[in-house]
Structure formats: C-alpha cells, structure tokens
Design a protein around this nucleic acid. Structure first.
Lengths: 248, 248
DNA sequence: AATCATTAGGGTAGGTTTTACGCTAACTGT
DNA sequence: ACAGTTAGCGTAAAACCTACCCTAATGATT
C-alpha cells in the first residue's frame, strides 16, 4: 500500500452574478494563454492551497483577488479527485503557472454569490475576467465545465431551501427582479401574481418608499430583505410541514 | 508564497444503520489503543487516500473493509481542513499507524447508509467495530465527533428531500418502521394515520401479501419501495410546488 | 372465555396553501 | 388619445395538511 503524499490540493470557485435578466459566472483568461496549444482559454478562478491555510480561507483569498470583496457568500460543494482530471498539457500548464511539480491535483469546488453592480464589473474588467452567461458556456479549461455544472445544480437546490437569492440582488430590488432571478436559475415560468403573494406573505420583504423611474410601465416598488424577520419566521415555522413535500 | 504539498488527504465515513428503534453509527476501536495516553478509543472508519485513487473509491474501500459490502449508499459531505484538527499525540498516532510522516491531514467526510441486518452485525462484530446509538456518543477520536454531527445534519436534510430512508430499512418493512425511522432521525413526533396517508398516497410503496408475525397487536403489512415509481412521480411533480415551502 | 392493551388501518371535517386567472392602475412611446 | 406593458389587488376552486373519529386484529391478563 503506497500512500500518495505529493498530490496537490486546490480550490476552484464558480462565482455567480445576476444582471436582472440572466445568470452569469465569472471566468478568468489564462495568463500565458497560447492559441497554438489546444487548451481552452477561459477558466474558473482558483488557487493552490497554501501552508497553514484552511480551504475556506483559500477560497476567500481567491475570491478577494477575483472580485475585490472580502465578505462573500461562499459554499463548499464537492471534491474533484479523478486522477485523470488534469493531465498532459493541462498538468504542465499548472506546474509552470504555479511553479510546482506535481503529478496530480485534487480540487475542491466552491460556489460564490455576488451582487453584480457597476463597481464589480469595473473591478473584474481590469483583471482579464469576464462575466459570461452561464447558458452560453460550452467549454472551459480542464474539468471546469463540470465544476460549473455541479455548482449550478447546487445553486438550484439552495435557492429552493434558503433565501440565497438576495445575495445575488442589489440591496433594493423589485419583486419582478426577484422573480426573474428564480425563473432564470430554475428554468421555470412563474406567475407574477402568485409569486408576489407568496413572497410578501412570508413577511421578510420590507417595502421602501422608492419606486422605479423611467420605465415604460407602472413603476414597481423597491423592497429590501429583512434577515432578522427571516430568522424569526424560520424558528416559528420549523413545523417542517411534517414530511416536507419531498417533491423531487 | 509557499505551496503545501505534503499534507495528506484522507477519508472518514459516518456509517449509519437503523435497528427499528434508534439510529446507530459504526465505530472502530483503534488497533493500538493505549489507555495511558489521553486519546479517545473509538473513531469513525477512515483511511488515507492512495495513489491513483479517487476519493469516492477510497471511501468505498473503507466501507468494504468495515462492512463487507461493495454497493453502499455513499455521499460526500464537506472537507475538514483546519490545520489544527489533528496535532500532537493524535498526529503521531496517525503517522505511526499509517507508516507515514505528515504534518497535516485534511480529511473528506462521507456518510453512508446500510441495512443493519444480522449478517451486518455479525460481520462488524468480528472487526472490533461497534454499532453505537448516535444520541449517546459524547467523545470520539480527533475531530470525529464533529464529523459525526455534520453527517447527522446532512442525513436530516437528505431525509426530507429524497427517499434515502429506504437505504436504512430492510427490503420489506412496515409503515410503522418507516415512521419510526423518520421520527428518530428528525427527532419529531409523527401522527401514524397521517403519515400512512401521505406515504401511501405518493404511490411508490408497493404492498406485499406478508404480514408481521408474533406481535401482540394487529399485524402490519409489509411493503417494498418501488424506485421506478418514485422516479416517475419525481418527473411529474417537478412542479416544485413552485417556490417550494422554504421553511427552515 | 372474556377482557384489556396495543397497534393497524380506513375515514372525515376544518383549516391552510397552491393554482389559475380576472381586473384595474400607472407609466412610456407613438 | 391610444396601445403596450408591467404593477398590484382580489377571488374561487383545487390540493393539501392536520387533528381527530372509528373499527380490526393480535397476544397478554384475568
């Protein structure tokens, strides 16, 4: 029995943002990209884990670098440990890029949610990073396409279970924006009138006095998310609906 | 920037079983346990990951060893990467036990579900392994108590979302057994009549002609779980209940 | 042999939630 | 002024959840 000690451990993050219409993910252009090799040009942000660093810390570090933000909604998913996930040219690229010598890289997948505001877009634009519509992505470097698909699955499930949607929206948002976000991520159609009832009925959206301006229809009210009210409601409603509608 | 390459990567598994009354977990006695050290005697089954082995494969290997079974319900949870999770005597024990020399072990937590039948109990009894009631566990080796708690949380959530309960029950079971399992894992009381309606109404329990014998009350019918019917129901019902009762 | 304790298993009535959809309000562009 | 659009309120029917009722069948107790 030989024990592997020279595999390296990395983190890769799928950073999601929502522009009001569709779900985007942050992609990085490889620094020493050479069109003559057959490597894909874009990848997810990631890094090797450093000495004395926990994985969540490594992920935070990657995200701070990629987005300029320290406080980010961040969640671990799974580990991608197939010995064949990075080989050949890709492995050489990694060793060259990180200045290491490894034969195997096991990576831990994270996904993160950020508010895609003007500041964010300006910051990432300077970093050879791009916000790309998730739907349109065909290939990515290494197995990053697979990591992205996994992340999307996790996001869907999480959206149905907890109020993570608000991590993707600006502080003030309209109910329609919230609805569009759910519809985009889950790929379903939602009736606006029922959505409004359900979401307002839950009591953790607090209305502001502001309304949309310059839209060619009745302007919608802006709301903010009340985390405290949510947590209160959470405790009261832990009735679990009994065996909780295990629908899927 | 120094990159850590000599951390070792291991897997640890919380293997759950249900004896009809309470939830149990499989614990292993450390082979060279010495009561004079202050190490806890019991630990979760686990192993270092080997060269050319994926993590799921390593976990399967551990489980095959601990339970004698190859096909087991197995799920990855999170990674325990705190540099301080294993130090001092515990670290020495690991290095001695595995014949390695590492300063840091990152472990990937898995949980597994098995049918706790007579064969299983006989097999584990021979392996210095014990099925211990989850509720009664106070301490475990290293950070295994924390891994166990995490696994229990995952199990609860999973039980509400998918029909994993049947992994813990014999092929033929009564509705009461199923109910007791839910009640035990979730720590709630369940009304028998409503539970029966809900579960039978879902249509993926198929009745057999057999009934309990030797019980001092009306004997209950045995049912089996119909995976195909479940998957069919799943697709029809992907209505999601719309934004699905995000209750907790 | 009658009675008791216990769980199985069918039912029903009332409340809550979901779903489908009608309607008016308010804004911009033509 | 009118068309096109989305906001936002309301309502009725269907589905679902909950709290109970009842009787059936078995072994244990008297």
């Amino acid at each position: 029995m030989s024990v592997q000690t020279n595999q390296s451990l990395s983190v890769d993050c799928a950073v999601f943002g929502f522009d009001g219409r569709s779900l985007k993910v942050l992609l990085i252009e490889r620094r020493d990209y050479n069109p003559e090799t057959h490597l894909d040009r874009m990848k997810l942000p990631g890094a090797m884990i450093q000495e004395n660093e926990t994985l969540p810390r490594a992920a935070s570090r990657v995200l701070a670098e990629a987005t300029g933000l320290r406080e980010i909604y961040l969640k671990q998913m799974e580990i991608f440990s197939d010995p064949g996930r990075v080989t050949g040219e890709e492995l050489e690229w990694i060793n060259r890029y990180h200045g290491i010598r490894t034969e195997r890289v096991v990576t831990v997948g994270y996904y993160a949610l950020v508010k895609l505001d003007r500041r964010m877009i300006a910051y990432t634009a300077e970093k050879r990073a791009q916000w790309v519509e998730v739907e349109s992505i065909q290939h990515l470097a290494m197995d990053h396409k697979q990591i992205l698909s996994t992340a999307l699955g996790h996001l869907c499930r999480e959206m149905l279970q907890s109020p993570v949607a608000f991590e993707l929206l600006p502080r003030k948002f309209t109910i329609r924006q919230l609805q569009n976000l759910y519809a985009a991520v889950l790929g379903i159609e939602i009736d606006n009138r029922n959505f409004r009832k359900k979401i307002l009925g839950s009591g953790f959206l607090i209305p502001t006095d502001e309304r949309e301006k310059g839209v060619s229809h009745k302007p919608a009210r802006y709301y903010t998310f009340d985390k405290t009210a949510y947590k209160r409601a959470l405790k009261e409603k832990l009735r679990l609906g009994f065996i909780n509608n295990w629908r899927y």
